[in-house]
Write a protein that binds this DNA or RNA. Structure first.
Length: 507
RNA sequence: GCCGCCAUCGUCUAGGGGCCUAGGACAUCGCCCUUUCAAGGCGGAAACACGGGUUCGAAUCCCGUUGGCGGUACCA
């Protein structure tokens, strides 16, 4: 069913509209096209569909480049690097479209339409009111030469130009073997003659894509299922031009948790949102690849190279899928844990700086210490952004107490343990302030007291961090340093530990 | 309304007529490990939307229903 492409023949493309931030759905289909191209040694083309002049802006083109690079989706031809089939921006290809429009006009497969948008809207509404399916009447197709000339003159006088419509042949079946869904058929009768070139001379999407795909020699198209209903119209253009259509496949959409289109309300929709939240590009890449596709071995965690190696059209799934943030977080955690400490620290740095915890250019010794701090939290965070909350008590002078932890852990009976711990720790000189030393000291104390570890360690933990959960206590104390540890113990002792029999201990 | 696409645990999915008492992963629950939190290990709960066919046999094939989504533009 699916033709296995020969080497180096595959040409696929990503054709976004530069009208806003890059949507996760767009990058998802780009990713499959990219995997397909890389798998078969093909060419991955980037082109901008900017025929919507109202909404297209150059700055969004830069965002597209940026997000693609971030995810590691490199392109072989594109607006910025050129290529043999350029230009790669639709507004720069107007003369090309015009040539094909002229050809269709000359062949009689397209015709000028002089109807105004207002007239058309009225017709449509009338049909709707009558409960009928609206399709363009074909009025301008049946014009006599005289009528045509009159209308053309009238339009010109009004400073308008006619649109061009494709004449849709009646009673034919438009069908294709969808790369992911199998055969899909539609009757041409359900499609009215549609505009291929607007009155302003700019072609409409369904026409421009076809011309671009033909002239750029695109062999395979993988796109979102939203395009299924466009395909018959595009097939009509291929047909009128006498050019065979590329192989086309439609991927399931990515939906939010409410089964609606992904948006701010139901989970972030833009690639940039995920980057800002501290997701790793390799994790997002891996995650997206698993939405709508599964490798034969069902392995979840996979490198870019493995994904390329395993990718196949046959294992693409049809149903739409929901973007499960929780699973992305898990996967991100997996990738974070795989990073070297240096790499992890390097990637965390911007987040810490943005939060004001770390200066712009930390000294070498400071950087070494920062890396150690980050290292003990590395196995515990799900995103890079989490590192800020996780480590801030190492960086700040004043700690914030988690009141729940204080209430639960700092009891009147903790006072003795904290006082003793303080005394013991005060005797440790700076040069001996190491995790192992501190651990030996306090374990010995616990044993002498004949109490449980938790009765002593937990109050210390809360006293120095303000929290009930931190990395292993002695690593934490060691990194915190002698001065901060002692100061926090003293402060907590005087301010936060209820005295025996006092009212404070009751709530 | 009309046209089209889709339908397996909460989620991503495996499955292509007997291998299915439906497998895996995330999440969830329990236990273990443990100074707390993670991570890890072990175990549990959890699905073939519904109704008809076809067949010796259906999650798998066909029809219908329901539901979701998309299109029905001089948007892409």
């Amino acid at each position: 069913m699916v033709d296995t492409p020969g080497p180096s023949k595959v040409r696929v493309r990503m054709a976004p509209s530069p009208t806003g931030p890059v949507h996760v759905g767009n990058i998802h289909t780009a990713l499959f096209n990219w995997l397909f191209a890389r798998k078969f040694g093909g060419t991955f083309v980037l082109r901008f569909e900017d025929t919507d002049r109202e909404r297209s802006e150059r700055k969004w083109e830069d965002v597209i480049y940026e997000e693609m690079r971030w995810l590691g989706l490199d392109w072989d031809e594109g607006p910025d690097i050129g290529g043999p089939y350029g230009p790669y921006r639709q507004t720069e290809r107007l003369d090309i479209y015009q040539r094909y429009v002229d050809q269709l006009l000359a062949q009689g497969d397209a015709y000028y339409c002089y109807c105004s948008p207002e007239e058309l809207a009225a017709e449509r509404q009338a049909a709707e009111r009558a409960g009928q399916t609206y399709r363009y009447s074909g009025r301008c197709l049946h014009l006599s030469e005289a009528e045509r000339a009159a209308l053309a003159a009238q339009l010109e006088a009004e400073g308008r130009s006619p649109a061009v419509r494709l004449h849709v042949p009646a009673g034919i079946t438009l069908a294709w073997d969808d790369l992911v869904r199998g055969r899909i058929e539609t009757e041409s009768n359900t499609i009215g003659d549609f505009v291929i070139r607007r009155g302003n001379g700019i072609p409409v999407y369904n026409f421009a894509v076809v011309i671009d795909d033909i002239t750029m020699k695109i062999t395979h198209i993988l796109r979102g299922e939203g395009h299924i209903s466009n395909t018959p119209m595009q097939l009509l253009v291929y047909r009128a031009l006498g050019v065979p259509a590329p192989q086309i496949g439609h991927l399931g959409h990515i939906l939010g948790t409410d089964r609606q289109k992904l948006s701010k309300r139901n989970g972030d929709a833009y690639v940039g949102d995920y980057r800002a939240k501290g997701f790793l590009p390799e994790a997002l890449f891996n995650f997206l690849a698993l939405l709508g596709w599964t490798p034969e071995d069902e392995q979840e965690v996979q490198s870019r190279e493995q994904l390329i190696e395993k990718f196949s059209l046959e294992r693409l799934t049809r149903a739409p899928s929901i973007f499960d943030l929780t699973k992305l977080e898990w996967l991100n955690g997996v990738y974070i844990r795989e990073l070297s400490v240096e790499e992890f620290a390097r990637r965390c740095l911007p987040f810490l700086q943005k939060a004001g915890l770390v200066e712009d250019h930390p000294s070498a010794s400071r950087w070494t210490w920062i890396q150690q701090v980050l290292a003990i939290e590395q196995p515990r965070v799900k995103t890079l952004a989490d590192i800020v909350q996780a480590t801030e008590y190492f960086f700040k002078d004043e700690i914030e107490y988690d009141e729940k932890a204080v209430r639960k852990v700092l009891k009147p009976e903790s006072r003795l343990f904290l006082q003793d711990a303080l005394q013991l720790l005060e005797k440790v000189p700076s040069e001996k302030w190491q995790s192992g030393v501190l651990e030996g000291l306090l374990h010995e104390y616990v044993e002498r007291q004949g109490v449980k570890n938790i009765q002593v360690f937990q109050p210390i933990r809360v006293a120095v961090s303000g929290r009930a959960a931190t990395p292993p206590l002695f690593d934490t104390l060691a990194l915190l340093g002698r001065e901060k540890t002692l100061a926090r113990l003293r402060h907590t002792l005087s301010e936060r530990v209820p005295k025996e029999n006092s009212e404070e201990g009751l709530d």
